[in-house]
Design a protein around this nucleic acid. Structure first.
Length: 366
DNA sequence: TTCCAGTGTC
DNA sequence: GACACCGGAA
């Protein structure tokens, strides 16, 4: 079988495209337990408006295609006091996104479900500021690209390739992964069948020098085995099942759900998203004002308020920002255009705690 | 020498 | 929460 693999550079242009695709996808889907209320409010609003402009007869005809209209979704209360006349403004801050629920009208007219949190003030302004900074400067995430499998692959093979790519790319520089994936592909080792049969040392040599290649080679074989025996060579289609695979944690599981199945189940939170959201004061431990302790906690906190159309693009946006300006050590607040909106601006310690701790440990040992 | 970065294990 | 896993860049 001849398959081609292509890595797509992930830059501002692709990000724009992803915005549009994600938005289209979200508007056309109505299933998820994690929707913050805003996008759905817009859907209802749009339908109401549309229906007013057409005749009753036409509306009757449209009924079967309008499943969202009277649907109560995932605990969002029915909107009794909803006023469609106060039409939502299309945000000037988001030229690439058809709708962003930033107007106060939404908040006043909608009863919020208790498990949704109030968005932090200025979040849209902050995101737009970061987006602007990102458009001026390339970050490693832009040129290296995340694992976007070639569109010419059949769906099942493509999904498996996405899974393996995710497995390899965690904890590693992306250009290294690129090489590893290419070698696997050239040797026809990018299917569950081939991987399961392949020698572990062969796999090891193919993926070297990807980070933690020994463990990953062993995980790849295990994953291939599970995919073959339980999923007929395909990959698991739910978050829970993906998490059962060795070497697949929350971050990669969300990524695979999104890229592999085109199904946004949650925000892909890595160390950059985790760090920056905490610096911005966007997330907190449930019921407190304390910072979140883990990326998982950050994901849950963020999902309580961030509109779903931002769930996908926020990762490349913040990763790039975190690689260039809002770095873990010595963040470059002097170069940041949103310092006025950032509660942590210029507040990070000059010498990181971890280093101090390690030095102390070394001194104690010697 | 330190740091990167997500997962797994204790 | 601490630490191991990896090679390589800074």
């Amino acid at each position: 079988m001849s398959i081609t693999w292509k890595l797509i550079p992930f830059g501002p242009t692709l990000m724009k495209k992803m915005y549009q695709e994600t938005t289209t996808r979200l508007l056309s889907s109505s299933s998820s337990n994690h929707h913050p209320p805003e996008p759905r409010v817009y859907v209802r609003k749009k339908r109401v408006k549309k229906n007013l402009e057409i005749s009753a007869e036409e509306e009757e005809k449209l009924q079967p295609q309008q499943p969202i209209r009277h649907q109560k979704i995932s605990g969002l209360p029915d909107i009794e006091d909803f006023e469609y006349k106060k039409t939502s403004k299309i945000s000037e801050l988001h030229p690439t996104t058809p709708y962003i629920p930033v107007t106060t009208t939404h908040h006043r007219s909608v009863k919020r479900a208790s498990n949704f949190a109030k968005p932090p003030g200025n979040w849209a302004k902050v995101l737009e500021g970061i987006r602007k900074m990102r458009s001026f400067e390339d970050a490693p995430v832009d040129s290296m690209g995340c694992e976007k499998a070639g569109s010419s692959l059949p769906p099942k093979e493509r999904r498996f390739a996405v899974l393996i790519s995710a497995l390899l790319s965690s904890q590693t520089k992306d250009h290294v992964n690129h090489g590893a994936i290419q070698r696997l592909l050239e040797n026809n080792l990018l299917t569950a069948d081939a991987l399961e049969k392949a020698n572990e040392d062969t796999i090891k040599s193919m993926i070297y020098p990807v980070g933690f290649y020994t463990r990953k080679a062993s995980n790849m074989k295990k994953v291939a085995n599970i995919c073959l025996s339980k999923y007929d060579g395909d990959i698991p289609s739910t978050l829970e099942d993906l998490l059962q695979l060795p070497g697949i944690g929350p971050k990669m599981a969300h990524l695979v759900m999104n890229v592999g199945w085109n199904n946004v189940q949650g925000i892909c939170v890595d160390t950059h998203v985790h760090r920056i959201c905490n610096r911005l004061g966007w997330v907190s431990r449930k019921g407190t004002n304390q910072k979140t302790k883990s990326p998982e906690e950050t994901r849950e906190s963020l999902e309580r308020w961030l509109p779903k159309e931002e769930w996908v693009p926020i990762n490349p946006l913040l990763v790039g920002f975190g690689q260039t300006i809002c770095t873990p050590l010595r963040p470059q607040c002097g170069r940041c255009s949103i310092v006025d909106l950032c509660p942590s601006a210029y507040k990070e310690a000059a010498s990181p705690k971890s280093t101090a701790k390690k030095s102390q440990k070394r001194n104690n040992l010697s």
